[in-house]
Design a protein around this nucleic acid. Sequence first.
DNA 1: TAGACGTGGAA
DNA 2: TTTCCAAGTCT
Length: 345
Amino acid sequence: MGDDISSTLLGWYDKYARSLPWRSPPGEPVPDDPAWPYRVWLSEVMLQQTTVAAVKPYFEKFTRIWPSVEDLAAAPEDDVMAAWAGLGYYSRARNLVKCAREVAGQGGFPRTEAELRELPGLGAYTAAAIAAIAFGERAVVVDANVERVVSRLFNIAEPLPAARKIIRERAEEITPDDRSGDFAQAMMDLGSGICTSKAPRCLLCPLQGECAGLKAGEPERLPVKPPKKPKPERTGTAYWIERDRHVWLVTRQGTGMLGGMRALPDDGWSARQDGSEQPPVSAEWQDAGTVRHTFTHAHLALKVKYARIAATPGGAGEWWPVGDIDKAGLPTLFAKAARLALSAD
DNA sequence: TAGACGTGGAA
DNA sequence: TTTCCAAGTCT
């Protein structure tokens, strides 16, 4: 049963695998090149909760600027954060630098799942994926695609997250000893293009004959997910402070929201609390408008105010040339705010 | 363990 | 317009 599923799926993958910049062709042995695990690692971290389409240009940029893990390890953290700007989940970029430095210090990536799991930013999924894809080790790779495919294949109606235990057991049973990396990527391609969340294309599925969820009638209902909680509405204010064709930028501290990223100064809004509306300096503030932005866990209405001042604000920050604002590495929220300020000014 | 943590595209 | 989500991790 498990062998039937894996051999059928691998046969399908040999024929229909997507060609992606970080992939080797199906069925080929793992490339014997130190750049290979680096590229697999980088792509896997970028792909966490992020679409292939969004990742592609970032992967090209990172591998062009930093072709090896040693290059990335030697890069200033600020440069890496700025290059990551717009991709989201910035703790990934902070951990990327940490991880690159550890790996470079060790002379390369470890090749076992357990050792990989110890590196910053690598959880159960990513460690298994790298072990299987980059090193050809047998590993059971479970991500949201695998959860969806497996819950349908075996008609697992238990809701998440409780279903994870049985899903992992089933995934373990159908994962082949050989080509477990190709098998994982085949499951992802299947989940991405055929066994999709809302409208699975079961008629095109190589596993339709083996799918208990399809036999039971409503595979699109699986996996059963817990109800979502409503997102709170938050308000805040960001400040565009200009002097002599330069704008005052700060770097957000800590590991919280947008931590480590350049930003416009603001009034201390967070996902948990509205901003104070207290500007960082006193000035003749003018309204530029409001930016709407949705995070995973809150909606934000960010008012944007602008002013020209003569002095330098107190506290840490830097004057950034207004003409180079697109090179500042602002996360999307503040890139939107900057655009608004520039259009109003 | 449930919540924090981004973004842009699809429906 | 709003909701949902896409190759998760960390605390």
